[in-house]
Design a protein around this nucleic acid. Structure first.
Length: 418
DNA sequence: TCTGGGGTCCTAGGACCC
DNA sequence: TCTGGGGTCCTAGGACCC
């Protein structure tokens, strides 16, 4: 018997958004199964959100890719079925999945809405046969929730994640260190976690095409051309990853942001400010509900010809006030905007600190108490009666939503950090 | 009929200080 | 008549993830 002291599962829902929609439709009496026909979940083209968010396996056979424009997908497959996204449904499914997983170990990291790491290290006494355990989990999810998952098994998170990506759907794969050479090294290098669009051509230039090529490449050369990222992916290619399964609620937020593609190009400052107001309402509400203040406010702008820029400012005094965030955002926009039509805008707040010991700034004229009371009152009304219960009159007839960004309920932590 | 939205981390240059 | 160098903070942009 090999050494199974470290044992990590990676549970990955197959085509999550699409599976969840398909499951919902079946449970509500629909005959056809979206998973068995070319279909995608996609945004609304009318409001310029028209990209593929998830695809069925039959759609994949038409070379339809996640992130590509819907009109392109339809060109590849004219009979493509497109379902709109429903984030509240996804959150329900994700929570239901999590409830099942939690019955097997408390050491769970929800890596995204549809992926979790489970740590079964040193639990042989409870689960002597990891394969049986994985089968039980997988089959219970299918039976009780109606959708399928892949489970990847290994001795660290990276390898477990790579393993769960092997043949889909409804499968269990192992990728232990002694299997790396056979199972992982022949794969194209872009299949490796953290090798993305920009890194791939750089690696190809170095004559690296498979994960094995990368694993056996001279680390010093890699370091000099890709810096720390080169070291990271070299380690990954060799199956080296010492990251812990971190309990998700122990991970502190580094920043909060919302952004939106506006249904039309914005060409005047007043409209731009209105969009910023609607974003600031969302960001500041989330900031307060996380019981934080922020010290840095930044805005981002994407022009109609897809040029992006950002501008940020550090505050003298941390804030969670809607009014303050709006004021600073507007100023940042005015300082940076060159008059080009604007397609997309965002507000992000960072350098968070607890709002527990909130200190009024001496420079702020003492309006703070009133503002905080107003913000709090609006938060309460909106959480009770919905975000549209109280809106600013400036949004009426504007064609701009009173609160922009957000996907309904809060999603679990997502990160490119294992 | 064009290209979403939520995150985290890294790098590089300039300002500023000693 | 000189023009080093280390450290930190701030800012903008880019890389990656789902």
């Amino acid at each position: 018997m090999k050494n199974f002291n470290k044992l990590i599962f990676h549970v990955d829902v197959n085509s999550a958004y699409l599976s969840w929609e398909a499951t919902y439709r079946k449970q509500h009496g629909e005959k056809a199964d979206l998973r068995e026909i070319p279909s995608v979940v996609g945004g609304d083209e009318e409001s310029r959100h028209g990209i593929v968010l998830a695809k069925s396996i039959p759609a994949k056979k038409y070379k339809i890719a996640t992130g590509e424009p819907l009109f392109l997908a339809r060109q590849k497959c004219p009979e493509l079925v497109v379902a709109p996204p429903r984030y509240d449904l996804y959150m329900q499914c994700s929570n239901a999945l999590n409830e099942i997983l939690q019955q097997y170990t408390p050491k769970i990291q929800r890596f995204s809405v549809d992926e979790s790491f489970l740590d079964f290290s040193n639990m042989q006494h409870l689960y002597p046969d990891y394969m049986k355990l994985a089968e039980e989990i997988k089959d219970r999810i299918k039976k009780e929730l109606g959708f399928t998952v892949n489970i990847g098994i290994s001795s660290n998170k990276l390898l477990a994640k790579v393993a769960s990506d092997f043949e889909k759907p409804d499968n269990i794969h192992t990728l232990f260190p002694w299997e790396i050479k056979d199972k992982m090294w022949p794969l194209p290098v872009e299949d490796l976690f953290m090798v993305g669009r920009a890194t791939l051509p750089k690696l190809n230039k170095l004559n690296i095409f498979t994960i094995g090529d990368l694993a056996n490449y001279d680390l010093e050369i890699l370091k000099s051309s890709l810096k720390s990222h080169g070291v990271l992916i070299w380690n990954y290619a060799n199956g080296i990853d010492n990251s812990e399964v971190r309990k998700s609620n122990n991970i502190e937020m580094k920043g909060i942001g919302n952004s939106t593609t506006i249904p039309f190009d914005v060409e005047d400052k007043e409209t731009a400010h209105l969009v910023l107001l609607s974003l600031a309402e969302m960001v500041s509400t989330r900031l307060r509900s996380s019981q934080n203040c922020c010290s840095v406010i930044s805005i981002s702008i994407r022009s109609s010809n897809f040029v992006s820029l950002s501008h940020q400012r550090k505050l003298y005094c941390p804030t969670d006030s809607t009014k303050k965030i709006v004021e600073v955002s507007n100023k940042l926009f005015d300082e940076k905007w060159n008059g080009e039509p604007v397609r997309h805008m965002g507000i992000h707040v960072t350098q968070l600190c607890t709002n527990e010991f909130y200190q009024c700034s001496l420079l702020d004229n003492g309006n703070n108490e009133k503002e905080r009371a107003l913000d709090k009152t609006l938060d309460n009304i909106r959480s009770k009666y919905g975000s549209g219960a109280v809106i600013r009159s400036s949004f009426l007839q504007s064609g701009i939503r009173s609160m922009s960004g957000g996907v309904g309920e809060e999603y679990p932590m997502m990160s490119s950090l294992l």
